[in-house]
Simulated scan of single mutants.
Amino acid sequence: MMTLVSSLLTLDFELGSVTRVRHLVTESARDAGLEGAALEDFVLAVHEALTNAVRHGLPPRDIALWTESGQLICEVSDRGPGIPAKALDLDYPSTRFDFGGRGLWLMNRLVHRDVRTGPHGTTLRLCVDLP
């Protein structure tokens, strides 16, 4: 069985480019076939991953977006200290607005999320089925 992979976007980003990257993700996801609430949910999840990488991670920070086997897949990576296990296992959002804690929870509810994290960095993989 052959798996069709189509690369849509690959680049490095920093704080000053988050808005531009979000727009590129929106355009690419729309071109891949997402629309309506599915598009909005995917872009919001990716935006949360981007802002978390800028806020908590270290450079270089990368994003890659592609389609594979009927899914739209986005990976956001950074070289920071990793995500604490307690932050990954929350079944509810943090109640402290000043310290964050909602991004990972929200991503998990909007898309399929996979996390690889450790002392040398984090990669978040966000996936959604294409129509």
Rank of each mutant, 00 (worst) to 15 (best):
L104W: 08
L39T: 03
V43Y: 03
G118T: 15
D62T: 11
N108P: 03
R61P: 00
M107H: 06
R102M: 14
G82T: 11
A45F: 09
L4E: 09
L39Y: 03
N108V: 03
A64Q: 13
A85I: 15
P131Q: 01
V5H: 07
D98L: 12
L58S: 15
L106S: 14
L15P: 03
L110K: 12
G36Q: 12
V25G: 04
R116Q: 07
G57D: 05
L11S: 09
Q71L: 06
A64R: 11
T19I: 07
V21Y: 04
A87M: 12
A32F: 07
A32D: 02
V5I: 13
A45K: 04
A87W: 12
R22L: 08
S69M: 11
H56E: 10
V76E: 00
Y92E: 13
D89F: 10
V115H: 01
E14D: 15
G36L: 10
C74R: 03
R79H: 14
E27S: 08
A29C: 10
R55Y: 13
W66Y: 12
L44G: 00
H56Q: 06
L65S: 05
D89M: 10
G82C: 12
G36V: 11
D31A: 11
R102H: 12
V115R: 00
E35Y: 09
V18D: 05
G103D: 05
A29R: 04
I83G: 01
R113H: 09
M2A: 13
A64M: 05
G80N: 02
L24C: 09
A32N: 04
G80C: 07
S69E: 12
E75R: 13
R61C: 02
L126K: 02
P59M: 06
D89R: 13
D129Q: 09
T122M: 09
I73A: 05
L44F: 04
S94I: 02
R61N: 02
P84L: 13
V111H: 01
P93W: 14
L39R: 06
R116P: 00
R102L: 13
T3R: 09
T3S: 13
E35T: 15
A37L: 10
A49R: 02
G118C: 13
L72P: 01
D129V: 04
S7R: 15
T117G: 02
S28R: 14
S28I: 05
L4P: 00
I63H: 02
E40R: 13
A38Y: 02
S7C: 13
T10Y: 14
V43F: 09
V46H: 05
R22S: 11
L58E: 13
L15Q: 12
F99S: 11
Q71F: 15
F42W: 04
G103P: 03
K86T: 10
D41P: 03
R22Q: 14
R30P: 01
A64W: 02
G80E: 01
N52I: 12
L8T: 01
A85D: 14
L126R: 01
P131G: 01
T122H: 10
G16L: 14
P60W: 01
R20W: 08
G100L: 14
C74S: 14
H112I: 14
T67D: 05
R30Q: 11
